[in-house]
Design a protein around this nucleic acid. Structure first.
Length: 355
DNA sequence: CTGTGCAATATGGCTATTAT
DNA sequence: ATAATAGCCATATTGCACAG
């Protein structure tokens, strides 16, 4: 299995091998490689905090350049991914996809992709009076920002899965494509082997028969209602079926206090480890610098995509304000939107009239 | 006995992806 | 195109433990 090989390389290679790989990617002189300690392996060198790596490299590059920082980035990236360029490209594509769906005209905030999701005129009114100092431009800017941030929330959940699932030794559990057995929740050896898991890890040399399976959430409050019980049952089934070690991990957060589904998961699956924050990332990334690594990866991608797409929030919101002004034609824009948001032909609004 | 804080459970309002 | 499923956050409600 490829993921096994990725991990084994890291454990058998030396610190200098890893640094050599990073220098190769950045086309830096190979003489730098001697900076890495001779007696350290690639895994622990790659787990060195960014700050420390940068300090190690800095004296050997011209002051005032970013080379030392970039090299530190690259070492951490090579530690995490067998093919960092490939994964960075995938992340950028994903971000670009979301940015391309950011609102650019009024219609994009007035109604969502689902025709039923209309901009709420009552929230608009609250925004106007309570948040925006009765200023229409600010009200609309807030509305746009809210829409965008919701899209970003969604993006990040998916990116954590993509990025962590692509790290050395990890694999992603794809959404089952065909549900022969009727539901995505039902275990099926061929079509849906790991229901309830997002990410898996190949067995470690220390525990050769233990596959490790993770359900990943963004925060501890992400799962709602009956999710916890369902996920717990699924995790327990995975443990029973494969002898798997199971984890219920939330990426963001610093305490289990306030966890909304820990109890339900543990009740259904007492052997599952419930983790949050660095504790979760330590298991998922096998590194103490997991959070730093994620941030490093994302920031690089955000910056690249920002330059590439040139989405300009200021000018978009100016344009959308103009669209609203046109619609309003001098009247009260919230009143005007109220009618737009609620009015329509009876056949569209009353099931008794619908054809 | 009452007030307080916590955890668990629900509800409501969104978007994205896949199956039908 | 629509339904089902899954992901997200904010907030309300309820039961329980504990302090006063």
């Amino acid at each position: 299995m490829k993921t096994t090989a990725d991990l084994e390389w890291l454990e058998s290679a030396s610190a200098r091998d890893l640094l050599s790989m990073a220098c190769g990617h950045l086309k830096l002189d190979a003489s730098i490689v001697a900076l890495a300690p001779a007696d350290t392996n690639a895994l622990s060198f790659g787990n060195t905090p960014h700050e420390e790596l940068q300090t190690l490299f800095a004296p050997h590059f011209p002051a005032g350049t970013d080379v030392a920082a970039d090299l530190a980035d690259e070492v951490q990236l090579c530690r995490a991914f067998a093919e960092p360029r490939l994964i960075l490209g995938e992340i950028e594509t994903k971000i670009e996809g979301i940015v391309s769906k950011f609102p650019t005209v009024a219609a994009h905030i007035q109604v969502g992709a689902n025709k039923g999701d209309v901009l709420d005129p009552f929230i608009l009114a609250a925004n106007f009076d309570l948040l925006s100092g009765r200023n229409m431009d600010r009200t609309i800017e807030m509305t746009i920002a809210h829409k965008i941030l919701m899209k970003i929330e969604d993006l990040l959940g998916g990116m954590h899965e993509l990025v962590i699932g692509s790290m050395r030794g990890n694999f992603r559990v794809p959404e089952p494509l065909q549900t022969l057995s009727g539901s995505k929740n039902v275990l099926h050896p061929a079509t849906n082997p790991f229901p309830g898991a997002d990410i898996g890890q190949v067995p470690l040399p220390q525990t050769p028969n233990k596959i490790r399976l993770f359900q990943c959430k963004n925060k501890t409050g992400s799962a709602k209602g009956g999710d916890g019980a369902r996920l717990g049952q699924q995790l327990r089934l995975l443990a029973e079926t494969y002898g798997a070690e199971t984890f219920y991990a939330a990426i963001v957060g610093n305490t289990l206090v306030g966890h909304r589904s820990k109890g339900a998961v543990l009740k259904a699956s007492p052997e599952t480890a419930v983790l949050v924050g660095n504790a979760a990332l330590a298991e998922l990334t096998r590194s103490d610098s997991g959070a730093e690594l994620l941030l490093r990866t994302y920031r690089r991608a955000f910056r690249t995509v920002s330059h590439k797409t040139g989405y300009d929030f200021e000018s978009v919101s100016t344009g959308i304000v103009a669209d609203f002004s046109k619609l309003t034609a001098g009247g009260d824009f919230i009143d005007s939107w109220l009618h737009q948001a609620m009015g329509g032909p009876r056949v569209d609004q009353d099931s008794r009239f619908a054809q």
